[in-house]
């Protein structure tokens, strides 16, 4: 394919490239810094990838190691430190446990409720739907203080329960699935009932399979939000490092370490940001649909 030169097109590209440079700047800083030695970071040298010359690690020297023993490769040193200076694996595991539990519970609660609102006639259904619409207006982050107090009264702060419980019901999830179920033909449900299926079986064996695209989009929406969430874990996890989620772990890393640790810190930031960014690059359409889901209202 060939395109004729057009001033207008070229101009659009120039503006968009300038924008892209600013958008990508911190990603470049993050990755490039994570590859460099402290000296290169301090002097702003080393280009994009750093020279990767061996350097003597400071902690190793203060522990009495000889200079030859302490020589390390900057990139390896930074990424090793990200895992040894802090329990990074633990943080990542906690992130996975929390995000997956939240999504599983949200599905378990929202799907039956959405089915009831969409397809069953019961007393108070309109009021129930009005409640869901009202709850859509309340951002959970805004009511963090009373939620925190309630959890503290129950003795649940500093636990997985504190990280997960407040997110088990998603008014948005119920709303979204309800809108989707509305489009499923009643005949399908009637046929299932004729076959003797109970309402519960209908939900999981008839309704859910038709709703896979909506559920997948909601999964991405939910997982991205909770993997990246910093505010809520910050509030309910105060001391116990073994419960830290990845953003909390990174914050701790920043608080603990001063000047010379930019290399390992940027390596940690890269490790935390990479899973979602890679998943996004692999399945862009789905991710964009999922995250902009709230735009479908």
């Amino acid at each position: 394919m060939t395109y004729r030169f057009s001033t207008r097109q070229t101009l659009a590209h120039v503006v968009l490239i300038l924008g892209a440079v600013i958008v990508l700047l911190p990603f470049y800083v993050m990755i490039s810094t994570s590859l460099k030695s402290p000296a290169e970071i301090a002097t702003g040298t080393g280009g994009v990838f750093g020279s990767q010359a061996l350097f003597a690690d400071q902690t190793c020297l203060t522990l009495g190691g000889s200079k030859a023993d302490c020589l390390v490769r900057p990139v390896l040193d930074n990424y090793t430190k990200a895992f040894t200076e802090a329990p990074m694996w633990r943080y990542l595991l906690n992130g996975v446990i929390v995000t997956l539990s939240i999504f599983a519970l949200q599905t378990l609660v929202a799907v039956p409720a959405a089915y009831a609102l969409a397809k069953l006639r019961f007393w108070g259904r309109d009021a129930a739907f009005a409640l869901v619409l009202f709850c859509l207006l309340i951002p959970v982050h805004a009511i963090a203080l009373p939620l925190y107090l309630m959890l503290a009264k129950l003795g649940l702060t500093n636990s997985y329960a504190a990280l997960i419980l407040p997110w088990t019901v998603s008014a948005f999830g119920i709303f979204l699935m309800r809108q989707f179920f509305m489009t499923v033909p009643d005949d399908l449900i009637d046929a299932a009932r004729m076959d003797g299926m109970g309402e519960f079986a209908i939900i999981w064996r008839v309704m859910l399979p038709t709703a896979i695209p909506a559920l997948l989009a909601f999964a991405i929406f939910s997982v991205v939000a909770h993997w990246n969430d910093y505010f809520w874990p910050r509030i309910v996890i105060t001391g116990d490092r073994s419960l830290f989620t990845p953003p909390l772990g990174l914050r701790e890393f920043k608080g603990d370490l001063g000047g010379d640790f930019y290399g390992p810190m940027m390596a940690s930031a890269t490790i935390i940001a990479v899973p979602l960014v890679v998943a996004f690059l692999l399945a862009q359409r789905r991710f964009i649909d999922g995250i902009t889901l709230s735009g479908m209202k």
Binding site: A113, F122, V140, I203
Partner: peptide, 28 residues
Amino acid sequence: RQARAGIVLFAPAFVLLILILIVPVVVA
């Protein structure tokens, strides 16, 4: 049967919406 199923299926969400979103607003 539908009416009963509807209430039973919405109940968990109802309880959680009240406890997690409405009660905290009142408490605050």
